[in-house]
Design a protein around this nucleic acid. Sequence first.
DNA 1: TGCCAAAAACTAATGGGGTTAGTTATAATG
DNA 2: CATTATAACTAACCCCATTAGTTTTTGGCA
Lengths: 194, 194
Amino acid sequence: MSPRKGLDTTAVLLKAVEIADRDGFDAVTVAALGKALGVRPPSLYNHVAGLPELHKLMVAAGYERLLERMTQAAAGRSENLAIHAMSNEYRQFAKDHPGLYEAMMRAVDFEDPDLRRRAEAVVALVVQVLVPYGLDKDDALHAVRGLRSILHGFTSLERSGQFGLPLDLDESFRRLVDTFLAGLCSMKNERHDS
Amino acid sequence: MSPRKGLDTTAVLLKAVEIADRDGFDAVTVAALGKALGVRPPSLYNHVAGLPELHKLMVAAGYERLLERMTQAAAGRSENLAIHAMSNEYRQFAKDHPGLYEAMMRAVDFEDPDLRRRAEAVVALVVQVLVPYGLDKDDALHAVRGLRSILHGFTSLERSGQFGLPLDLDESFRRLVDTFLAGLCSMKNERHDS
DNA sequence: TGCCAAAAACTAATGGGGTTAGTTATAATG
DNA sequence: CATTATAACTAACCCCATTAGTTTTTGGCA
């Protein structure tokens, strides 16, 4: 009835995430958003500057939520237990929000300092969890890059259906993280031996 | 001059790959292809059924080339040397063909048996290289999933600029593969111990 | 209570994509 | 040299993002 639907930026963002997670990132169009919100496409420009701006909002929200979940997963845990908990949470986040995760990996504009800061906060969390392993600064950063690669690589291939074989995915993931952690220790010991 | 430009499917495919690698996967449009080939957009439909079909051709060509390169890299090498060689080749392929690699990760239709076969051929190659490690069948498949995750994760994050810090990327990559291999050995030994 | 300004919706229109239908012109074949 | 297959073309349609300009509603203030 009323021409005032009471929309705001947050409502648009939430609906965008909903569409992305249901139909994929490419389904987040101004037209689809308008239809889902019961509004003509141009009306959305009262709340969001355009599609690129909306993508940026989605990515920012995604990193914020991911950081929350990983922080909580790491709380009260340390070393391998903490790494496994964070890893599982990362993977579960990507499963819960496939479209949002896709946005985070595709629609990133690294000129934007806000996005950069949010992404770095996740890195900082992992660095912190790696402290007890006694790696020096560079070693720790290399290790974070490695863990990120593992987490993103596995979740990305899993989500796009590239693991075709009928072999338990949870088991593959657990082993991968385990293997990486075992390798970290083994390589540290080797260096001490020499 | 002549209204016959002598185009064929291969020429269109090659130009599509060229555009993708130069300007990104999303820049591969019928309009851009037509302009690059000196032809009006509808003319392309004489050689390619449409954009989805073209994407499928790109992905198929990408897997074929990747398999060639990894096979050659593994030739005459074994164990860790072979794994490192294949890994470096994988990463270099993604660097040489960023847009094509993007297509392989984004535009995959797994209903298509041809694409499925090509992707599985790469998996089979890695399985073969893992034979000397003496893993049983399931262990080997889990390991292949792990290695794929590592390779895709690292190259993907590297290419999208998500590794912000000024820390040597070659070194990070080498260490990641090393860590994984060390972990594989270490976990095999642990199992033998128990 | 009634008016007024801010803002949120709207319609209309532009430009750019992918694609289809139908037409023209060229090159190869007999 | 005529015929035929085909590769190009033009015209047209639909969908999308976006801008400009207009209407309508709401919330606050005289």
